[in-house]
Amino acid sequence: MELIKPDIGLLFWMIVSFSIVLFILIKYAWKPILKAIKARERSIAKSLDAAQRAKDEMAKIEFGNEKITALAKIERENILKEAKEAKVKIIEEAKETAKQEAQKILEDARKSVFKEKEDAINEIKNQIAELSVGIAEKLLRDHLSDGSKQKHLISNIVKNIELN
């Protein structure tokens, strides 16, 4: 029965010591601990919030980047296309120019050849004329050595001359 009989002395000391330890622990342990844990929880929540916001921001930026990249792609395509067109045009133009140049060169060549030919023909003509005169001179000299022949010739020439 002594087991379930409260003892006044023990109760007294228990209440005294428990009250003291309650006071000390509340003041110097639980309050600072709970306050620190709460502050830390708040800071963690805040950090997580900030991280989330940064993530959102990043996503936004990434989205912007994508847009920019897409735009750049289109731009590049355009530029390439334009470049291709320009190339084709330039080649076309170059070809045209070359053709014209060639034509011109050909023309010039033809002209010069013609001129050369003309000159050559003229030269030949002159030479032929000289030669003919020479031959004719020789022939005449030959023919005119005898009188009959001279007469014949003159008569021939005279005959041929038509008086008009």
Binding site: P32, I37, A39, S43
Partner: peptide, 18 residues
């Protein structure tokens, strides 16, 4: 109890948010 928890509280105050 005091020897355990008062230093623990001090640790919380010494390095907050850690």
């Amino acid at each position: 109890l005091v020897v355990i928890f008062v230093p623990v509280a001090k640790a919380y105050q010494r390095k907050p948010n850690q």
